[in-house]
Write a protein that binds this DNA or RNA. Sequence first.
DNA 1: CTTGACTCTCCAGCAGCTGCAGACTCTATA
DNA 2: TATAGAGTCTGCAGCTGCTGGAGAGTCAAG
Lengths: 291, 291
Amino acid sequence: MDRESDTTKRGLLPIGKMAKANSVSIGTLRLYDQLGLLSPAYIDEQSGYRYYDIRQSARLDIIRYMRELDMTLADISTLLEKEDLTLIEDMLIRKNEQIYSQMRELKAMQDAVNRTIHSIERYRISPASGTISLEFIDRRFILSMPCRDNFYEHGIVSYEQNIHILRSKLLEKGIPQLLSYNLGTSVKNEDFTAGRFIADQIFIFGDKHLRDYGENVSILESGMYACIYLDNFDDEIPFAHKLMEYCRKQNFQMEGDYICEEMTEFNFFDNRQRNMFLRLQVQVSFPKNNP
Amino acid sequence: MDRESDTTKRGLLPIGKMAKANSVSIGTLRLYDQLGLLSPAYIDEQSGYRYYDIRQSARLDIIRYMRELDMTLADISTLLEKEDLTLIEDMLIRKNEQIYSQMRELKAMQDAVNRTIHSIERYRISPASGTISLEFIDRRFILSMPCRDNFYEHGIVSYEQNIHILRSKLLEKGIPQLLSYNLGTSVKNEDFTAGRFIADQIFIFGDKHLRDYGENVSILESGMYACIYLDNFDDEIPFAHKLMEYCRKQNFQMEGDYICEEMTEFNFFDNRQRNMFLRLQVQVSFPKNNP
DNA sequence: CTTGACTCTCCAGCAGCTGCAGACTCTATA
DNA sequence: TATAGAGTCTGCAGCTGCTGGAGAGTCAAG
């Protein structure tokens, strides 16, 4: 009995050859058989050996193609069972849309990565804590939310809660990458100048693309800012007082709201505390000497 | 003993609160603890309850951020252990490149999907088997390879082998989506006109973008082609003879090589055979009547 | 002191494979 | 025709990053 010539004469391939011919693993072929996705053309009852018809490569092509489109084997299975070209076309059209949104996501990811890289660079050149400067800052876009409660009074827990709420709102808008955006908080000008630390707004800084995210986006116009740098959240208030003092001594007029900008925040290493590099700032103008 | 006030006084959160505050599942937090990625600030020895410091949210942010960049927990873990900002920056730069190539892949996928959709449309309006026509066909780009052996003589197995070799070559060049390209084969003009079916080249059809893939790309110039449609690979030779006959009767001069174009190939349904819609074709010219 | 909400550990499951162990089976050569 | 060496079989475990469940213990409020 020439069972072996039987199969070879008919041009059937054992599983290994079939696998090689299609650049697929043997395990994969066995799995597909098990799931009924691609049954061998012939199975030897004695040995249980699987033999494939080379023409089954075509079916395998499709399965691999659909897999490359990230479909599940279950979906592929039902689609192939239905035997309806229209369904397949529908699937492809849906796939197309899905790929679009994946590309958008990828783009967003890339932006996020670039922002983080940029933050690290900026961290590298950050001035020493306590440095005071007068800087021109270009216009910025912020996406803001009123603070729920005054974290200056209620402490870090309250601050984190505010962050959490902001994050949820951003998530709804499809901005999940909080880490890669710079956070900021503000105190109203009248409160600040009176020495009252009452948190007003909490927000993220972004570029012009932020405008795509609707109504809560506003603009901080460009201008001269008095700034002080520090690296610890706990020191904010004393440093803010230093800033105020500086403005008064220099006879600067504090114009806008007080802003605490979290320029970087890397907690790669210390898992207890937010490691920050902050820039406290307030826009100033320079009153002419009595004319 | 006021153990419970102990934890709350220190501002520690039980796992559920921590999970909610960060929009993460409890299970995830437990997993991170287990892997040493984020250990609770305090664990009650009696009860085993985990208590987190709200400030640990920062560390969690990073982990989630890196996860969104599709890093494995193991990679994140080693990166965080190293405590080296430069390594993190390197990682981000690599990530950036990776995202680029993912975008390219996605684009290729989309092209593939569109080509397949287009094929289905074309299949819908395909003429009946046996239809003969004279058509103007615009210039086409092909990426070709000489046939290893003559599948007209050695049959389907040899044909599939040729496909396999072509596929491997395409794969090297980064064109994995064979299914979505149209396949074609050619017979040299002198062989064809003499009635000898000797496979010459095997190739895929593409558009101008194919040129990006190097030296094996050539152009089929636009022109008038005599064509015959059919839907079964096995009928190729008799149909090709019909085509030849037609050209002779019409007194057309067969100019270029004979081409068998696999316009569509859907094996969604029959797992034994390639279901095809073929267009056999040869470029023709029209000799003037004796002047 | 009870009730109901939390939390603990441990285990199973997901998808699409890969890789093992231990037992057969094929094929080519001696 | 014996045998070596390659190929194949089944069945199970493992991978990743979670999710969900069972059964037991714990916490906070009334």
